[in-house]
Write a protein that binds this DNA or RNA. Structure first.
Length: 239
DNA sequence: TAGATTTGACCACC
DNA sequence: GGTGGTCAAATCTA
């Protein structure tokens, strides 16, 4: 069962003084860091990723998995994603997006409105009332975990919560959290406290009004994740 | 059989 | 030399 609190996302600190961050920035131009729940991670972010590495990180409890765009070879897409379980809360993951998607394919679920394949965005609806309605619709919106793990081509139901117990809205990734050149530079990141789960600002994300939509995944308390070990899922690094 | 994942090794940076 | 990031061969899966 996925509670509202489970469906949360928060920006992490850029930690400009963090040596790891610095090292990353030396090699990469753009770095967007998110914190998502297991359900959100399973739901995918609208892109097709291919895992190319996994590594133990010093001082971290969980291994870090490295993904790059499936269209890296075919379209030369340089987008890279890093996924790592958080130390303080095993149900949450730090996702770091590096680079921009240059591929036009694999960013959206079929049938999803494509306003601009090169400038995807999150939409954020601050209307809490909408969550209950959408929760009732979750059964029809939930995507099979296996499907998500194989394709990662469905919109990500990233959700906001200012505290673990309170939801203020839900982010829906229409295609990608990065690759919007005109907005990426505005990614203001407020630091996340060690107790995590606090929402920071998402400048590149559009606070949508009526056209925003929510989605809650029913993950049965993420129990299905435990069953994914045998399917070479993306969470194997948590073992 | 093709595509994805795993994993050890290598490279770049500090 | 230590660490993070990437490569590529081996392995797995549909």
């Amino acid at each position: 069962m996925s509670s509202i609190a489970d469906c949360s996302i928060s920006m992490l600190s850029n930690a400009s003084d963090d040596p790891i961050f610095k090292a990353t920035m030396k090699r990469n131009k753009k770095r967007h860091e998110l914190r998502v729940s297991k359900a959100d991670l399973l739901a995918g972010d609208g892109h097709n990723w291919r895992k190319y590495g996994q590594k133990e990180i010093l001082g971290a409890k969980h291994r870090r998995a490295y993904y790059r765009c499936t269209h890296r070879n075919s379209q030369g897409c340089k987008a890279v994603k890093q996924v790592q379980g958080t130390d303080e809360d095993p149900t949450f993951f730090n996702i770091v997006y590096i680079g921009e998607h240059t591929s036009a394919q694999g960013q959206r679920a079929p049938g999803q409105a494509a306003t601009d394949a090169q400038a995807p965005e999150y939409k954020y609806n601050a209307n809490p009332g909408a969550s209950s309605l959408l929760q009732s619709q979750s059964s029809s919106l939930t995507v099979e975990p296996e499907q998500q793990l194989q394709g990662w081509d469905a919109p990500a139901p990233f959700c906001f919560s200012s505290t673990p117990a309170m939801v203020s809205g839900c982010l829906v990734l229409e295609s990608s959290p990065f690759s919007a050149p005109s907005r990426s530079k505005n990614w203001g990141v407020s630091s996340a406290t060690s107790d995590s789960n606090h929402v920071a600002s998402f400048p590149p994300f559009e606070v949508a009004g009526d056209d925003a939509f929510f989605r809650f995944d029913e993950a049965d308390d993420y129990g299905f994740l435990d069953d994914l070990d045998s399917t070479s899922d993306v969470f194997s690094f948590l073992e």
